[in-house]
């Protein structure tokens, strides 16, 4: 397969300049709507306009940079249709809210108002994000370590399999959030309670995936290794565990999603910091613009988290390049 067809398989319309032009124009239209149509609600729209202008500038800068790699330009074109649609959506939302009050406050703030909150509340939001991410990574990391360790034991050793697998099956199906009352009562702070619940969320699904990966090692791999002089230790660390790495990453990616859900629920119920707590607090003040701002941050944060996991995955599974993932 040559690289040309490769690119058009990976990206949607990687060479279409027109869609890129449409994307830029659409964002510009959203900015124009905001600048030209008079406001009905009282909103400081300058942040929104600055963001849109900066976004257009970034698009054009990326496009005109001569050093820009071809691949990156294909990617830019790939996302053009999405950006164009987003621009139109923003313009429509803006017209329905800030510009006309058809969708009422406080439940439906306009895009300009949400952006405004993101700026004016940036210190609180930043701290909340840091708290959430700290809890998330601490919990997930513990879950991954425990999950890999138990998964290896279950997949490799029959005695451990006998004792741990039934426990895994029973405890694994209980929704982790069911433990919230117990966790909050037993642990000294809500941070530790949170870690406990995130560990519960990730441990079992990762352990299960790791065990499956280890058990699925082809018999021939073990046999060939033994005729090459390998002992049991070698079979475990150089054959079975490497064979389980793809499943380990599947386990980490799925449990990251579940952990994020658990995280927000714990924060909304028991914590005194974090994005989940912020949502609850803003709701109490009927500041729905802040709720939306927090939700936007969650979306962006989780995309970045998945991206980071993917970078690791691509590195460890580089031997799979070109084959089915």
């Amino acid at each position: 397969m040559n690289s040309e067809t490769d690119i058009s398989k990976k990206y949607w319309k990687p060479k279409s300049k027109w869609w890129f032009a449409a994307a830029v124009l659409s964002i510009a239209a959203a900015a124009a709507v905001n600048a030209l149509v008079p406001d009905v609600q009282t909103v400081n729209t300058s942040y929104y306009r600055i963001v849109l202008a900066a976004f257009i500038a970034a698009l054009l800068a990326l496009w005109t940079t001569p050093v820009l790699a071809r691949k990156l330009r294909h990617k830019l074109y790939h996302y053009s249709q999405f950006i164009a649609a987003a621009g139109l959506l923003l313009a429509v939302l803006d017209l329905l809210t800030t510009k006309s009050d058809i969708l009422k406050l406080p439940f439906f703030p306009g895009p300009a108002q949400i952006i405004e909150v993101l700026f004016t509340e940036r210190n609180t939001l930043f701290i909340c994000t840091v708290y959430s991410l700290r809890l998330f990574f601490a919990g997930l990391a513990c879950g991954v370590v425990l999950g890999i360790a138990t998964g290896v034991m279950i997949g490799w050793n029959r005695q451990w399999n006998y004792w741990l697998f039934p426990v895994l099956k029973v405890v694994g199906v209980i929704p982790p959030v069911a433990w919230i009352p117990i966790a909050l009562a037993v642990f000294p702070t809500s941070f530790y309670a949170g870690i406990f619940l995130l560990v519960l969320t990730s441990w079992f699904s990762i352990a299960f995936m790791v065990a499956t990966g280890i058990e699925s090692t082809p018999k021939a791999y073990f046999e060939v290794s033994r005729t090459l002089g390998a002992n049991d230790r070698f079979l475990l660390f150089h054959v079975a565990i490497p064979n389980a790495v793809p499943s380990i990453f599947t386990g980490i990616a799925t449990s990251a999603g579940m952990c994020f859900m658990t995280l927000v629920i714990i924060e909304m119920i028991g914590a005194k910091a974090g994005l989940g707590w912020y949502i609850n607090w803003a709701k109490a003040w009927a500041s729905y613009d802040k709720v939306y701002a927090s939700i936007v941050i969650m979306g962006v944060a989780f995309c970045i988290i998945l991206g980071v996991i993917n970078v690791f995955r691509n590195y460890f599974l580089r031997w799979q390049k070109g084959t089915v993932r």
Binding site: Y221, E223, V224, T227, V239
Partner: peptide, 17 residues
């Protein structure tokens, strides 16, 4: 099994990683 008796399978059984 021992390394003094090398074995080649019909499917090469190379480690893909």
């Amino acid at each position: 099994p021992s390394h003094e008796r090398g074995y080649v399978f019909q499917q090469a059984a190379l480690f893909p990683w």
